[in-house]
């Protein structure tokens, strides 16, 4: 039979193993000592931007007294920014000109010479420049999500992200047209809007552009909703769009170049109207990790303004 001494040695070894396992596990399994994630989805490479490509620098921040800025536009070199239940008018120097409290949660804002249009989920509220309410357009379905407004010479274009269509209204709130961007020859599938980001804008020449985020495309329409042209980004690097819903916001610089703002990998970039990539305005590292996408606008000087919901401020970028 087994030697008693052997048994004892065996037992002692086991006791040592038990103590070592418990003590080792207890000491090792601590925050900061655990191994890093083998399954990590490393988006770091995607966020890298060649410094050569960054053609803007951030010059100023306007800290907003707002929990979450939602939409922003610039008219006559005054910034109109909505958020919480407020509409604030700020000069391009960062001085608060006016504050209008809104009885609803605003999404986005658009301004023309006589009126301010603010969208809620399912309605458009019209104010004059003193903040007096003029009208409320409520003829939308309960399933609407009015994510973009653009005006041009008495026409008001409204983008409905939920119903995936664009409406054309008169200034007085008469609906004249709606279109889904579908073309007969099936060149494109119409608007594909997987999330709440669906923007449109009209440049200084009166061209209506609509973002088609599901196709990573920017599309040019006539005021009657006929597709005139489009471009999509074909690149998997910084020159193109990634994710499912980009560009989330866009605006025009004086001269017609486009500024796009993307979600997912947060970045702001400049494109020519033809779709040719010009450069980066704000690289992903400027934004908070897993942050929210910023609405963009530009002033007559060509400065780019981004309403950053995470930093609760308007960030100003100027061309280097």
């Amino acid at each position: 039979m087994m030697n008693k001494k052997g048994i004892y040695i065996f037992l002692i070894i086991l006791a040592v193993i038990i103590v070592a396992v418990i003590a080792g596990d207890f000491a090792r399994n601590r925050p900061g000592k655990r191994p890093s994630n083998p399954f990590e989805y490393n988006m770091g490479d995607l966020k890298k931007v060649d410094p050569e490509q960054i053609i803007y620098r951030e010059t100023r921040n306007f800290k907003l007294k707002m929990e979450e800025p939602a939409g922003m536009t610039i008219f006559n070199d005054q910034i109109y920014v909505t958020g919480d239940q407020l509409l604030q008018v700020i000069t391009t120097e960062g001085r608060l000109v006016r504050e209008i409290s809104l009885p609803f949660k605003p999404l986005t804002v658009e301004v023309n010479t006589s009126r301010i249009f603010v969208s809620a989920r399912e309605s458009i509220h019209v104010y004059d420049h003193d903040g007096n309410p003029l009208a409320e357009w409520t003829g939308f379905t309960g399933n609407s999500y009015l994510s973009g407004i653009a005006t041009y010479e008495g026409n008001v274009f409204i983008a409905d992200a939920a119903r995936r269509r664009v409406y054309r209204f008169t200034e007085d709130g008469e609906k004249e047209l709606e279109f889904e961007g579908k073309v007969s020859d099936d060149a494109l599938h119409g608007f594909i809007v997987p999330s709440g980001c669906f923007d449109l804008a009209i440049n200084e020449f009166g061209d209506l552009w609509v973002a088609n985020p599901g196709k990573h495309a920017l599309e040019n329409y006539t005021f009657n909703g006929i597709l005139r042209g489009y471009w999509t980004s074909q690149f998997s690097d910084v020159k193109g769009f990634t994710g499912c819903c980009n560009p989330a916001f866009f605006t025009f610089l004086p001269g017609g170049n486009m500024i796009t703002s993307e979600k997912g990998i947060l970045r702001i970039k400049e494109y020519k109207p033809s779709g040719e990539f010009v450069g980066v305005v704000a690289e992903p590292s400027r934004f908070m990790e897993d942050g929210k996408v910023s609405d963009v606008a530009s002033d007559s000087q060509g400065r780019v303004y981004a309403a950053d919901p995470d930093k609760k401020s308007i960030r100003v970028f100027e061309k280097i």
């Binding site: 399954f39 989805y41 988006m43 490479d45 995607l46 594909i192 809007v193 997987p194 999330s195 599901g214 990573h216 998997s236 990634t242 994710g243 499912c244 819903c245 997912g264 990998i265």
Partner: peptide, 28 residues
């Protein structure tokens, strides 16, 4: 779900094309 063609959860960020091929899939 947005039922998108280009699903950020399905495709690698640097996908080659929008197909079900192994080199495009994110899921290990």
């Amino acid at each position: 779900c947005g039922y998108c063609d280009l699903c950020g959860g399905y495709f690698k960020a640097g996908y080659n094309e929008l197909s079900t091929a192994g080199e495009n899939q994110l899921c290990p």
